[in-house]
Computed example of a mutant assay.
Amino acid sequence: MKRAIAKTNDFITNKAIAIKSATSNNRGEGYIDTAIKILISVVLGALLLAGLYMLFGDVVMPTLNERITDMFNYAG
């Protein structure tokens, strides 16, 4: 009987150690970390794209149209 109790006690102790090591393990990258990285990338990309659209719409395109008109203005 003592041998069965000792064997059960060892089994429970080993399982408790395995569970503790699994729950305290912080080696892997979690889903939350990955989701936050993707969200930050998407937001920064959208801001960059909006800035480029604003720059091209207000600054580059009118100047480009003016220069092309001046280049092909044969009247003088």
Rank of each mutant, 00 (worst) to 15 (best):
S24L: 03
I36W: 00
A16N: 00
V59A: 11
I32W: 07
M54D: 03
D10M: 01
M1G: 04
M61I: 14
L49Y: 15
N9T: 10
V59W: 10
I17H: 10
R27I: 05
N25M: 01
Y74V: 14
T34L: 10
D10P: 00
K20S: 11
E66V: 08
N26C: 06
R3G: 01
N9L: 08
G28K: 08
G51T: 13
A6H: 00
S24G: 11
A6R: 01
T63Y: 12
Y31V: 15
L39A: 13
V59T: 13
I19G: 06
E29S: 11
G30A: 06
A22Q: 07
G45F: 08
I38R: 06
A50P: 05
N14E: 05
K2I: 04
K37N: 01
V60Q: 13
I38W: 08
K15T: 02
T8F: 09
M1Q: 05
L55I: 12
L44Y: 06
P62E: 15
V42I: 10
E29G: 08
R27W: 05
A22K: 05
A46H: 04
K2G: 01
M54V: 00
K20Y: 07
G45T: 14
V60F: 14
K37D: 12
L44W: 03
S21R: 01
A18V: 00
I32G: 04
I17V: 09
L64S: 14
L55W: 10
R3F: 03
I36D: 02
E66N: 11
N65E: 15
D58E: 13
R27F: 06
G76H: 07
L39T: 14
L39K: 14
T8D: 13
T8A: 05
V42C: 03
K20R: 03
G57E: 06
I17K: 10
S41W: 15
K2V: 01
T69H: 09
N14C: 00
A6Q: 03
T63A: 15
M54Q: 06
M71Y: 09
R67D: 04
G28D: 07
R67P: 00
K15H: 01
A18M: 01
K2H: 09
K15L: 06
A18Q: 10
L47K: 11
I32V: 08
K20P: 02
E66T: 11
M61C: 07
V59M: 10
G45M: 07
T13G: 05
D33G: 02
G76Q: 08
N25H: 04
R3E: 09
A6C: 02
D70P: 03
R3A: 04
A6G: 00
S21P: 01
D70H: 14
G45Q: 01
S41P: 10
I38A: 10
A46P: 13
N9S: 07
I68W: 13
L47H: 10
Y53V: 08
M1A: 03
E66R: 14
K7W: 01
K37L: 02
A4P: 01
D33C: 00
D10E: 03
V43Q: 12
F11D: 04
I19S: 07
I12W: 02
G28V: 00
T13N: 09
